[in-house]
C-alpha cells in the first residue's frame, strides 16, 4: 500500500500532464485538467515548504534541548526562523509592521540583516578564487594549459580594462573571442550538455512514472 499508492499517483499525474499537452485547454476535458493539476501542484508545493520548516524546527529543537555540540548555532537558526516568520504571518491589518510589505519587520530584517549577510558570504568567494588562482591553477598538462589560456582570455574579455588591452593588441580580438570561444567551442559543448541533460530528465521522468525509480519515496 505504501508503495503502490504513490506509484499510481505519480503515474496518473505524469500521464495526465503528458496527454494534456496535446489537447486544447479550452475545448477538451483532458486539456482542462491541466490547469487543475497545476493548481494542485502549487498547493502541494506550499505544503512542502511547511514540511521543511517543521523538519528544521524538529531537528534543531532536539539538538538545543540536548545541548549537543554547536547547539548555540541551532538556537540562532530557530530564533531566526521565528523572527522572520511570525511578523510576516501576522495579518497586516493589525499593524503596518506586520506582513511582508515595505516598512514591515520582515522587510527590515530581510534588507538589513539577511541580504547583507548573504551578499557577504557570496563575496568571500572572490578571495578564495584569487588565492586558489595563485596556489593551484597550474599548466601541468596540455589540457590544463588550454583551460588556463582560455580562462585568461575570457577573463580579460569580460572586463573593460582587459577588453581595452586586447583591442590594443588587435581591434578584432574581443570579437574573435566572442565568435570562436563563447559562440563556438563553448556553445557546442553547452549544447551537448543541455541535450544530454534533457534526455536524462526525460528518461528519469519515464522511470518515475513507470515505478522503476523509487528514490523519491526514500527507497
Amino acid at each position: 500500500m505504501k508503495t503502490t499508492v504513490p506509484i499510481i499517483a505519480a503515474f496518473l499525474s505524469g500521464f495526465v500532464m503528458l496527454l494534456a499537452f496535446f489537447f486544447n485547454p479550452e475545448t477538451s476535458a483532458l486539456g482542462k485538467l491541466e490547469p487543475e493539476v497545476l493548481s494542485w501542484v502549487t498547493i502541494v508545493g506550499g505544503f512542502t515548504l511547511l514540511l521543511g520548516v517543521v523538519s528544521i524546527v524538529r531537528v534543531n529543537y532536539s539538538s538545543v534541548k540536548r545541548k549537543s555540540s554547536g547547539w548555540g548555532y541551532k538556537l540562532a537558526t530557530l530564533i531566526s526562523i521565528f523572527a522572520m516568520a511570525i511578523p510576516a504571518i501576522v495579518p497586516v491589518r493589525w499593524s503596518s509592521l506586520f506582513g511582508t510589505g515595505t516598512g514591515s519587520i520582515y522587510d527590515w530584517l530581510f534588507n538589513y540583516i539577511d541580504s547583507p549577510m548573504m551578499s557577504t558570504m557570496f563575496a568571500m568567494l572572490a578571495f578564495y578564487i584569487a588565492s586558489a588562482a595563485f596556489r593551484a591553477f597550474r599548466a601541468r598538462s596540455a589540457e590544463a594549459t588550454l583551460l588556463l589560456v582560455t580562462a585568461t582570455l575570457v577573463m580579460l574579455w569580460r572586463v573593460p580594462m582587459g577588453e581595452a588591452f586586447l583591442s590594443g593588441i588587435h581591434p578584432d580580438i574581443p570579437d574573435l573571442i566572442n565568435t570562436y570561444i563563447m559562440n563556438g567551442a563553448n556553445m557546442a559543448v553547452q549544447r551537448g550538455i543541455i541535450i544530454g541533460a534533457a534526455l536524462g530528465a526525460a528518461a528519469m521522468s519515464l522511470r518515475i512514472m513507470l515505478g522503476i525509480e523509487r528514490t523519491y519515496m526514500g527507497k
Partner: peptide, 23 residues
C-alpha cells in the same frame, strides 16, 4: 563596479601567471 571587477580580474590573471612562473 566595472573598475573593481577589472582590477580584480587582472590581479587574478597576474596571480595565475606568477604562480606558474614560480611553479
Amino acid at each position: 563596479g566595472m573598475t573593481s571587477q577589472s582590477l580584480v580580474h587582472l590581479f587574478i590573471i597576474f596571480s595565475v601567471i606568477a604562480g606558474n612562473i614560480i611553479f
